[in-house]
């Protein structure tokens, strides 16, 4: 999130001459100003500069390939999300009885047992958030690609939410990892991660990468163009 801010700095400097309505189509961007901001240290350079003079990182005015990377990571995340839900997430062996539960199955079981709160949390964390992320990223990417006339600030806020909340999806994996590590009581009880855990972890990781690959600067580009 903070990484998206620095590029605006020169624009702000430049743009002080102009009013800043939120949905103003005539926003002066760095790109439009012929500048390029370093995404690492925030150093503004002239366009054409290959490397940041301050930190030496590669400078791109916009993410290379546009939303391709977003789509690619998103697809990978989606692909892994399917087995993550089909395969059991947690394999619990209690006194020789093996219980393999999928993400949804486990959550529903919890609800069935009356643990509504936990069940809903698990459901939210494991199903709602990932799916919401997929939808959000898809929406962002589509909005950029298709030049949908949407509130650019809302999009940015959505992106920030996705970026912020995305890592919390890993709580499932964390719980599974902790349980698997702690509950190894031999025959009495043992918990081991199922194949879904890896898939889910991969899925979360891919969606995070997907979110990371999204260059928020493009929100302003296209909108600006559209507004033109």
């Amino acid at each position: 999130m903070s990484s998206t801010q620095p590029p605006t700095m020169p624009e702000e400097i430049i743009g002080t001459t102009k009013p800043r309505p939120a949905h103003d189509a005539h926003v002066l961007t760095a790109r439009r100003a012929g500048l390029v901001g370093c995404t690492v240290c925030g150093q503004v350079s002239h366009r054409g500069t290959a490397h940041c003079p301050r930190c030496g990182s590669v400078l791109h005015s916009r993410a290379p390939g546009g939303t391709q990377q977003v789509w690619a990571w998103l697809l990978a995340g989606l692909v892994f999300y399917i087995p993550a839900n089909l395969y059991p997430m947690l394999i619990t062996r209690t006194l020789g009885q093996e219980m393999a539960s999928t993400i949804v199955g486990g959550a529903l079981e919890l609800i069935e047992y009356g643990d509504w709160g936990v069940g809903i949390i698990v459901l939210t964390a494991s199903v709602g958030i990932p799916i919401g992320k997929f939808i959000a990223i898809t929406l962002l990417a589509l909005a950029v690609d298709k030049h949908w006339k949407l509130d650019r600030h809302r999009l940015l806020q959505l992106y920030e939410i996705v970026e912020f909340i995305g890592r919390w999806s890993m709580i499932d994996i964390f719980v599974v990892a902790v349980l698997s590590a702690l509950v190894q009581l031999g025959f009495v009880a043992s918990i081991s991660p199922g194949p879904a855990a890896a898939c889910f972890a991969a899925s979360v990781a891919f969606t995070m990468l997907s979110a990371r690959a999204f260059d928020t600067r493009m929100i302003w580009d296209r909108i600006g163009e559209q507004s033109d």
Binding site: G34, R47, P64, G65, Q69, A72, L75, A76, V79, F80
Partner: peptide
Amino acid sequence: EPESPTIQDKTRLPSVVWLVPIGAIAVS
């Protein structure tokens, strides 16, 4: 501006990132 074509070129070319979903699909 010289960047525009490059940007357009880059957007048209498939990124190597696509190998990741392809691999994921293949694995799945």
